[in-house]
Design a protein around this nucleic acid. Structure first.
Lengths: 235, 235
DNA sequence: TGAGGTATTATGTATGACATAATAAAAGTA
DNA sequence: TACTTTTATTATGTCATACATAATACCTCA
């Protein structure tokens, strides 16, 4: 056993707390798949007894799982396994005021990536009703001559509908989470370059493409539509 | 005060637990922005004293913040505010075995959206070194004639590098998180349609486009490159 | 002055008790 | 018998206290 192995061993000293270990064990237990959604897990006292630790530790470990959305606990009924709503959970820790600038900028960019990349799903899954609704939304928008006053409400209505059309709940939740962050970055002085309200491809233009065009055309049009945002990121 | 208002009041009965309230108060405190990263927050006993609840409750509330990545606690030093690594946190609750099918499928699709949508960032931020590295990766790949044996390692190396080039850490972390899920969905029987290993635009083709083409060309090429995956989703 | 030991402090863990809410069991009534 | 109400049970939620542990600050002594 060479010195390097020894060092490896040293590195392996268990610095984790008791709760850490218990948490790991519990997560491992859930992964065994012996348990599926809705199944109850052992009571706190049982667990404490079995694992030989205090109920305090068990409670902390369970609490972590609960915050992560892996379990839900009800009085008397004990804790049951749940399918975590990931984005619901993230949403809570998604406070723009707390995130660092790098992450915030990343989120801003992420939206642009998503809206350009989702073209195929829109074309594949859009229904006639969706298309009709899109047209409605566009018709309710103010005149394009005064687009410098564009309404954030209409922006959300239109782009939100696009996410909805993709039929991807995860994507939609992601957008919902991203929205406040995007807005925050947009208005805080985080991006150096000024806002240029020049409008390129309009919402109406996008709808026309959805109706008569192809995913390829849509991607390019959306890229153009978002030019104002890209311009603030690139030179 | 009409009956409806009364009902409103009834609806407003506070069903939240003590810990919930304390958590809300603490989060609110952090949002005051009076506190920035690295700043310590009051000790557990102080908080318990100030808010008039037991230390247990305080600890549970703090634990939630900790799991959400908003604070870190050190012995003796107390708890300090941290900039949360959102995706690190999500990663923990991102166990494919626990997520429900709908979410899993959503994640699978999300990857496709991302890789098509990130073209502009690749072109904007790629360096000569990046390009060189991409070529290296492609050169190390097995012959395209035996592409039915394509190696998952090379897939990850190539596509991972693309994420890296975007210069968006958030995006990269997101990919890291998505990877196991994508792989899981790919191999579990979740997608009905069989895997068709037919190769369309190759990695080499993509590199060529990055070198000589445009974001627009890249998006189309990537869409084509991912055709195998899309084919399993669409009719 | 600086190294090393000691005291202090705040979190981590353990224990025991009681409160509370949800359920199950039992009792009572039509 | 069926159905409602009351009572018991059970498991989590909250409280209080004590001690362990690790990190820091302080203090002593060479």
């Amino acid at each position: 056993m060479g010195i390097n192995d020894l060092m490896e061993d040293f590195k392996a000293v268990d610095t984790s707390s008791l709760v850490d270990k218990v948490e790991a064990k519990l997560v491992h237990l859930l992964q065994q798949q012996k348990l599926s959604v809705g199944d109850p897990i052992p009571k706190e006292v049982e667990l404490a007894d079995t694992l030989g630790v205090s109920r305090t530790v068990i409670r902390e470990a369970l609490l972590r799982l609960r915050v992560m959305g892996l379990i839900e606990s009800r009085k008397k009924k004990g804790a049951v396994i749940t399918s975590p709503d990931i984005f619901g959970i993230i949403g809570k820790s998604m406070n723009p005021h707390i995130l660092d600038q790098e992450t915030l900028k990343g989120m801003f960019e992420l939206r642009l990536v998503l809206e350009i990349g989702m073209a195929d799903f829109i074309f594949q899954r859009i229904t006639p009703e969706d298309l009709e609704e899109l047209k409605q939304i566009v018709n309710n928008e103010p005149d394009s001559t005064q687009d410098h006053l564009f309404n954030i409400e209409h922006e959300i209505a239109f782009h939100g509908k696009l996410y909805e059309i993709t039929g991807n709940e995860t994507l939609k939740k992601f957008q919902k989470m991203l929205l406040p962050v995007f807005d925050y970055v947009h208005h805080s002085g985080l991006l150096k370059k000024p806002v240029n309200k020049k409008r390129f491809v309009s919402h109406k233009g996008l709808v026309d493409i959805i109706e008569n065009g192809s995913p390829e055309m849509f991607r390019n049009a959306m890229r153009n539509h978002l030019e104002n945002h890209f311009a603030r990121l690139f030179d």
